[in-house]
Write a protein that binds this DNA or RNA. Structure first.
Lengths: 214, 214
DNA sequence: ACCAAGATAGTAATTAGTTACTATCTAAAT
DNA sequence: ATTTAGATAGTAACTAATTACTATCTTGGT
């Protein structure tokens, strides 16, 4: 779990990447609010001051981390849904992919939540909030498509369904966070989604098959 | 929003209560991780050092706050569900009462989440986690009752339904936290619960009436 | 091919500002 | 008069950021 005795002297770009990864790893076990520059440096076998050769300040580190998380998450979700024509199945694929990502990177949601709780609008927070918006838009589109395609029941409250979709994931994360067992998410996710699906689907005709998780 | 120019010299018990309330108020607008003893003192027109006349350390303050939140929340939920024979309606009442409580005290969930994110098991964290367990047990009981009474559909995944119930609330909270508008919860809650209800109910016979929120 | 010269990446020590917590004194209330 | 609650003025520990210096790559002129 600890950092390898890093052969020092990395090129700048790479060092920045290593830094971001170090933060993500640290966040998996440490309260993000308590992650100090010293802790980051130590985890990557570096002196504290050296970090500031690559980032102008701590906020810039967080910004880079949020960007990393956002890009990876979105890419994974995008890929999970691509090539699936059924909106409902797309939603399920996104759902499971999202859960899988979080289980792989438990630090990610913790940092997101930690960041969003801050009162002042830091650049990192703006990134996080922007990502959420993008996500919501995508979900909304799929719901709309599902409705016109007849998969979702016609009187469905669009906005509420989107809120519940995202909220469900966040709830799952929180539950696992509390239980201290991120792996639980992987098994809980399909079961929970099944109920959500029953709540939005047009009728109970097709018993869901609980498709495999990639 | 600020504290009244407190006529000083309060008896110890009362001062402790005022302190707890000050923290809850502060948490509504400030990142709980950044709430310093100085900030608490300032918000209640007191010097920082004076706080330690009433609490042995900061952790004790958090502990008192978590206790306060837990008791108030549980009492409100308990009261909301009492006298309702239908488990499904009880669940709805609990749901709305919970949301209402959070909307009244936006600081509460922020502190809970903040506390639960910490790696080390502080007394405050133990309180929070214990409260969650108690809550989950109650939900589980109602779901079980709803099943035997025929209100919930028989093949329902008990555990997943409980997770989703709590998760849904947490998700709503998160959404509002991000949007920076806690009032949104009040209007969103019934709409979101309607979908949840459709997911767990035995069939779509009775259109939900969206009972009034107390 | 070589090697001076600059750029690059790192160390170690230090600084200014916070933070939780404490010791000592003062005023009010019973 | 004594106890209680608060004010004042600290301290030690910690954190982000800076500085002076060093080791190591990279490169262009010969």
């Amino acid at each position: 779990m600890n950092a390898s005795p890093q052969p020092k002297k990395l090129p700048a770009d790479e060092r920045r990447n290593v830094t971001v990864e170090a933060v993500v790893e640290l966040a998996a076990t440490t309260n993000p609010a308590e992650i100090t520059t010293a802790a980051i440096a130590k985890h990557m076998n570096l002196t504290q001051g050296a970090l500031f050769r690559h980032f102008p300040n701590k906020e810039a580190i967080w910004q880079a981390v949020m960007k990393w998380v956002g890009e990876r998450l979105m890419a994974r979700i995008e890929k999970a849904a691509e090539g699936i024509s059924s909106p409902l199945e797309s939603l399920q694929a996104m759902f499971l992919a999202h859960v899988c990502f979080v289980a792989d990177h438990p630090g990610a949601p913790r940092m997101l939540y930690g960041e969003l709780q801050g009162a002042k609008a830091t650049p990192a927070k703006r990134l996080a909030s922007q990502m959420m918006k993008q996500y919501a838009a995508r979900v909304n589109y799929l719901i709309e498509a599902g409705k016109t395609q007849g998969e979702l029941h016609p009187e469905l409250d669009n906005e509420a369904a989107a809120t519940l979709f995202i909220g469900t994931i966040q709830g799952l994360v929180m539950q696992s966070l509390i239980a201290g067992d991120m792996e639980r998410m992987r098994t809980d996710a399909p079961r929970v989604f099944a109920i959500y699906q029953r709540g939005i689907a047009s009728s109970h005709v097709a018993k869901n098959d609980t498709k495999g998780v990639s």
